[in-house]
């Protein structure tokens, strides 16, 4: 689904260049659930921008769904984003003056789907994330977790092959984080490739593959247990929540 070959990306600075991604080689198969981890400055945001066609790269190769992504017009990139990708953001990024159902329908608006049809679809997707009764609410009338679920429904509505989530639980408490993660895992179970950028081990631990970035290079890549080692540092409180709400949690978390 995603293949990066010796990908390099740098940002021009005043007098020099800031080399951010230093030859990334990465391959992600359809239907994978991947966490990208790394300290701030490690290049994970840049990697997400490149993967999400929000930004270009200098050299190397990027193939998305079998297509080579090179230099392309913003119009074409927007079209590919709309058809292949869905985004979930840390701060939800709902349009504040639009109701939940309008927010969910927004990507279809840009694909010029008729209003009636896209609003009907949006209601279906809201129902899927359990918010059918909040369709007419504005974002400020929803809790953080509910807003993030609206955002997930919005990412899903265009039927993307890949969902890119940037710190999807970063603004949520642990109980809500877990619920959101559950929703994301369910989506992944339907075959959508899911990439989650996170710095929370608890979140990464609930994926099937963790890629660790450090200083623009991939430092580790493998199942959470391997990357973190056996002694998972998940706090007891979180483990308790996980244990009580999910019976499919990765062994590494339950092991504590």
């Amino acid at each position: 689904m995603i293949r990066l070959t010796r990908l390099n990306k740098s940002y021009p600075m005043a007098s020099s260049k800031l080399h951010v991604l230093k030859g990334i080689d990465l391959s992600i198969a359809p239907g994978e659930l991947v966490a990208i981890m790394g300290a701030s400055g490690s290049g994970k945001s840049t990697l997400l921008n490149v993967l999400g066609l929000l930004d270009g790269y200098d050299d190397g190769d990027y193939h998305l769904d079998g297509q080579r992504i090179g230099q392309m017009s913003e119009t074409k990139a927007a079209g590919l984003r709309a058809s292949l990708l869905g985004f979930v953001f840390q701060s939800f990024n709902l349009i504040p003056f639009k109701t939940a159902v309008e927010n969910v329908a927004l990507p279809l608006y840009y694909q010029e789907v008729p209003r009636r049809k896209r609003n009907k679809l949006a209601e279906e997707y809201l129902d899927r994330v359990g918010l059918a009764d909040r369709a007419g609410h504005l974002p400020r009338e929803l809790s953080g977790g509910q807003q993030q679920r609206v955002a997930i429904a919005r990412a899903l509505i265009s039927n993307p092959k890949v969902i890119l989530a940037d710190e999807p639980t970063g603004a949520l408490d642990s109980q809500t984080s877990l619920e959101v993660m559950e929703v994301l895992r369910e989506i992944n179970a339907t075959g959508v490739t899911l990439l989650i950028v996170t710095h929370e081990r608890e979140v990464a631990a609930r994926t099937r593959r963790v890629i660790r970035l450090r200083d623009g290079r991939i430092e580790g890549d493998g199942p959470p247990e391997t990357v973190f080692g056996t002694a998972s540092p998940a706090p007891a409180a979180f483990a308790h929540v996980v244990a009580s709400t999910s019976d499919s949690a990765p062994a590494a978390v339950l092991a504590t």
């Binding site: 999400g52 929000l54 913003e74 119009t75 927007a78 079209g79 984003r81 709309a82 058809s83 985004f87 953001f89 990024n93 349009i95 927004l106 990507p107 840009y110 694909q111 919005r154 265009s158």
Partner: peptide, 16 residues
Amino acid sequence: TKEIGIRRALGAKPSA
């Protein structure tokens, strides 16, 4: 700015 960025990430073409 932020809102426009979000719209573009969601697939709004420059013409839109």
